[in-house]
Computed example of a mutant assay.
Amino acid sequence: MQLNRPFATVTPTLDGDVLAVLASADATFTISQVQRILATGSGEGIRKVLNRLTAQGVVLHDQVGRTNTYRLNTEHLAAEPIMALAQLNSTFLERLEKHLNGWLTTLRYAAVFGSAATGHMKLESDIDLFLVRAADTGHDGNEAWEERVTELARLVTAWTGNDGRIVEYTEDELRAAAAAGEPLLRDVAKQGLTIAGTRSWLNAQLRPAAKRS
């Protein structure tokens, strides 16, 4: 799936993209506003979609002067599943956060990065996860950690259909990579979506290396 195009999981048509816009805010939209947000689809195509959805009662149409406006009918029977689909990205992040909470003190930091974080996913995109493991977990901790990482990758694929690509660091490895100027760390710090730990902790690990450079 594409987290940035949640309705594409059930329909590849323009209808899904238009519904995603209408479900994004409790507001009215003109055809030109929908077109600017989507940056795809012609004005005529969007108008036809809105007319179809209005005929189904899912969209409410009003006219102010010569301007046609549209909004999602939140009282419609289909409104709840429509809004649930529109929120798939946040639902995914919430599931990740809840799952990683069970890792307790073995995990210092985690983030989603790459196209899943920047909103540029394609259908075949991996979902990139960045994990920092706490120090001193011992041999038994190694085995438990590996099992958790394997299960996390499985869950990401089960939830989304995309491969989960997990990049792991220990705390010491993170500091060494930061000192070496590893570009991936800059990407995570700049664009990553934190799902465990705090961004301030990550920045604190990277800051000394930044000062030396």
Rank of each mutant, 00 (worst) to 15 (best):
W103Q: 04
N142F: 06
T11I: 00
R207I: 02
V64I: 15
E182R: 10
A23T: 05
L53Q: 09
L77G: 09
T157M: 13
G192C: 11
D26K: 07
G102A: 09
A116N: 06
R199T: 13
D172A: 14
A84N: 12
T198F: 03
N89Q: 14
D136F: 12
N4F: 03
N89H: 15
R175D: 12
H99F: 06
R47H: 11
D26L: 00
R5I: 05
R154E: 13
V21M: 04
N101Y: 04
T118L: 04
H76I: 03
T198W: 01
T170R: 01
I31F: 02
A177S: 14
T118N: 04
Y169Q: 12
L100S: 06
H120Q: 15
T28D: 03
N203Y: 06
S90F: 08
V59I: 09
A153H: 07
G141K: 11
T28W: 07
F113I: 05
N73E: 08
N4D: 12
N203F: 04
V34K: 02
M121C: 03
V21Q: 01
A204M: 00
G114N: 09
G138S: 12
R71N: 05
D163I: 09
R207T: 12
G161F: 04
N162S: 15
R52S: 11
F7M: 05
V10D: 06
V167K: 00
A84E: 14
L131K: 01
G192I: 08
F92G: 04
K211S: 07
P6G: 09
I127C: 00
V188L: 01
R52M: 03
A78D: 09
G114A: 11
E168N: 09
G102R: 00
E173L: 07
M83C: 04
R95D: 05
D62A: 12
T170M: 01
I166Y: 08
H120G: 07
G181R: 06
A189S: 14
A111L: 02
A179H: 08
D17I: 05
T40R: 10
R212M: 15
P12N: 14
P208C: 15
Y109C: 08
L155C: 10
A86S: 11
T91D: 01
A27E: 10
I127R: 00
D172R: 10
E80S: 15
R47K: 08
L185N: 09
V156L: 14
T54P: 06
L22E: 00
T69P: 02
E143G: 10
L206R: 04
L206A: 07
G119C: 08
T105Y: 02
T160C: 10
N203L: 12
S213H: 09
Q35G: 05
T170V: 06
L53I: 01
L185D: 02
K122R: 13
